[in-house]
Simulated scan of single mutants.
Amino acid sequence: MTYSKPKCVGRIAAFLAICLAGSLLVSAPFLVLLFNGNSNTFLAKSAPDLMALACSAFLLVALAVENRIEKLDLWTFWLSGIQTKTILISILLGLLWQLSIYLICQLSDAAYPHPNTVSISSLLISILSTGLLVPFTEEMLFRKWLVSMMERGSFKPAAIIILSSVLFFCMHLGDPFFRVDTLIFAVPLCYIYIKYHDIRYCVIAHAVCNLAGIAFPLLAH
């Protein structure tokens, strides 16, 4: 299946609009809990992670429906041929990404996004949501789905990388600090996916970044 460039852009924009509207809808109860609830309660402290779980669940359902409509074969993952060298590069990329987040927070006097004291239950929720599910969902959306759609429109790799990186950056504009790291590190992530067409490398890099962000404050505490 192929599309003209205008039709491809239109279909991408329509699906992203659905994703945005649905994410805002499922996020609303947790935003109310976060801003109006008692900040000392377990639910209030876990609200960001619970919101991430809800948004990820919605986006995965949306991707499943989109996959049936577009027949993109999004859920096919190569079970062999993974390269150890590329895995190591992905891990290093994830660690560098988290280091850049720490430096941005230091330079901008922004609070580091992960708490240094958490209960076991909230830690497990954070690992499940921020550490594992969010990286998988975001890489499926901004790398595998987006690249697959743009390839159907015969866009050049440079254009795909630029759009993927800019959209990934825009998604994080609501974060407490300026997430220029998302713009910088989206470039090698998208390049890796275009080169290998194996989303596992991107998920590994993203998960390492987020898990390192959870672990660093705990190790320093």
Rank of each mutant, 00 (worst) to 15 (best):
C209I: 11
T86F: 14
P135Q: 07
L211A: 01
D181R: 06
L95V: 04
K45S: 07
I12T: 01
D175H: 13
L33G: 03
T117K: 10
S121G: 12
A215L: 06
V26M: 11
W97H: 09
I192L: 15
L88P: 03
L107G: 14
F177M: 08
L31M: 12
N40V: 08
F142D: 08
S4F: 14
I214V: 04
T84S: 10
L60N: 06
T130G: 07
G94R: 01
S154H: 15
I161S: 00
I120V: 10
T137K: 00
A186Y: 05
Y201N: 02
Q83R: 13
T117P: 07
A186E: 00
S100N: 10
C19I: 14
F169S: 05
L92F: 13
V65G: 04
F155S: 07
P48V: 04
K71E: 14
A52N: 12
C190T: 15
A158Q: 11
L211V: 04
I184P: 03
P115T: 00
L88I: 07
C190F: 10
L31S: 13
S80V: 13
I194D: 03
L133V: 05
P29H: 08
P217Y: 10
M171L: 08
L99E: 02
T84G: 08
V118A: 09
D175A: 14
P135S: 06
S39Q: 12
A62F: 09
C105M: 03
M51R: 13
F142C: 12
T86Q: 12
H197S: 12
E139S: 06
G174M: 08
P115Q: 01
